[in-house]
């Protein structure tokens, strides 16, 4: 599935929710089911630190595609990360770097993009794109 197809799928899933609490319940479920990060990897190296919650992101490059792993101490945040992973994981670096993540607006999650939330969505997306960029550079050097 392409990155945009996955986004459209998420938008469709969210379209059934009539209020915010339903959305949050769904995000909580997603958060609970997100494959957890190794405790030993919850280090400064992978941490996006903020005043509200902590987020850890790691990535590997497997067969030309990037596989993300992430975790957070807050469950709703974890649910949001799980959507980002679903969209961006197992895609090629270029697709990720150039991705227009329109699902965020269409699902109403954009308020979490607030730049004052240092570890909000925008910081996570930035970190994920940086991983993609790093893998791309590395690949070109080989």
């Amino acid at each position: 599935m392409t990155l945009n197809e996955k986004q459209n799928q998420i938008i469709e899933e969210f379209s059934v929710f009539t209020d915010w609490i339903d959305k949050y319940e769904y995000l909580i479920e997603l958060g609970k089911n997100l494959q957890t990060f190794d405790e030993k990897n919850k280090t400064e190296q992978y941490l996006i630190k903020g005043c509200q919650s902590r987020v850890w992101i790691d990535a590997e490059y497997v067969n030309g595609k990037i596989i993300y792993k992430a975790d957070s101490d807050a469950i709703i945040t974890k649910g949001i990360i799980s959507l980002l992973i679903r969209v961006m994981s197992e895609q090629e670096p270029d697709e990720i770097i150039n991705a227009d993540l329109f699902f965020i607006n269409k699902t109403g999650l954009q308020e979490n993009l607030s730049p004052t939330r240092a570890n909000g969505l925008s910081a996570m997306i930035k970190q994920m794109k940086l991983y993609a960029l790093a893998f791309k550079v590395k690949k070109n050097e080989l």
Binding site: W20, I21, Y24, Q52
Partner: peptide, 22 residues
């Protein structure tokens, strides 16, 4: 053991403004 941010975000959607964080 619910994270303060989770509590705060849901209260917000109910119109309740509280402070969360450090």
């Amino acid at each position: 053991d619910i994270h303060h941010l989770d509590t705060g975000m849901i209260l917000d959607k109910k119109g309740i403004a509280v402070r969360t964080g450090t």
